[in-house]
Amino acid sequence: MSGETQRMTMGKAINTGLRHALEGDPKVLLMGEDIGALGGVFRVTDGLQKDFGDDRVVDSPLAESGILGTAIGLALRGYRPVCEIQFDGFIFPAYDQITTQLAKIHNRSKGRLQVPVVIRVPSGGGIGAVEHHSESPEALFAHTPGLRVVAPSTPQDAYTMIREAVASPDPVLYFEPKARYWDKGDVDTSVFGTDASRASLDAAQVVRPGSDVTLVTYGAAVHVSLKAAEAAAAEGTSVEVVDLRAVSPLDTATVAASVRRTGRCVVVHEAATFLGPGAEVAARVSEECFYSLEAPVLRVGAFHAPYPVSKIEHDYLPSVDRILEAVDRLLSH
């Protein structure tokens, strides 16, 4: 354990990453609703306005398109804005600015202009919330060229990936699995600014090795996938878990290498399966691993129904049982 390693929650890891980014570059600034004195509704920006001032930790008017549009202007002036969208379901007023402007200005200017804006989105379900507070809209953004879309699953990745996202010359959507904010882990804050740490925005990693089935997952669903792998091991099935970390770009090489070994693949995410990121993974796996597959690629995700009332949300989200059911189907093929 290095001297810079501390045990902390994922929320604190992001907070620490933002603090270090603000310390490291005077052009970095945070924008969002209630991120100042309150520290954000999840307290992810706790204490930052006090230490960096209200010019750098900016409580914005309650207007998401306004936050993104002004962030683009600030980026064009040489700043590196990190925007907080309070909840996943409130990103849509900003959807136009993100997809028609933020994603395209670098391309529109033939590379002359850069818009290094980070959009932090507390995302996903499982916290018993009301409508619009539990969604996983990442596919909509991964479908848009010009955006990078990432989701950490551990405190260490949360720290490293927010630092790398802020340093990236490209716009990055950073989906924070809000149900995992309170998970604790060791965080080495020296993991930043190297080729290996930069890969956290591009490269999947095998987080549990196995030989019978590959679970491909990211963000909040990594946790439930690991639990499913544990349960499968108890029944004698060896499950490998690949954490994509990025939905755009998609690291198909790491996924394909795993599936060529296991011959079976299940994609697990909280987003709906219909036209979700898993559909793309399944297509890539069928192209690249056709002769290694023992069974069709399966997906476990949300249904093609609006996020349900919280009393039944656990029937909507991928669960250990639904993942094991998919694993069993593959093995009995």
Binding site: T70, L74, L76
Partner: peptide, 19 residues
């Protein structure tokens, strides 16, 4: 996209203030 750049101008001006 009609009107999108009014926000870019405003954000740019917020940058000018900070400069």
């Amino acid at each position: 996209v009609i009107g999108s750049h009014a926000l870019h101008a405003t954000g740019y001006a917020m940058g000018v203030q900070r400069d």
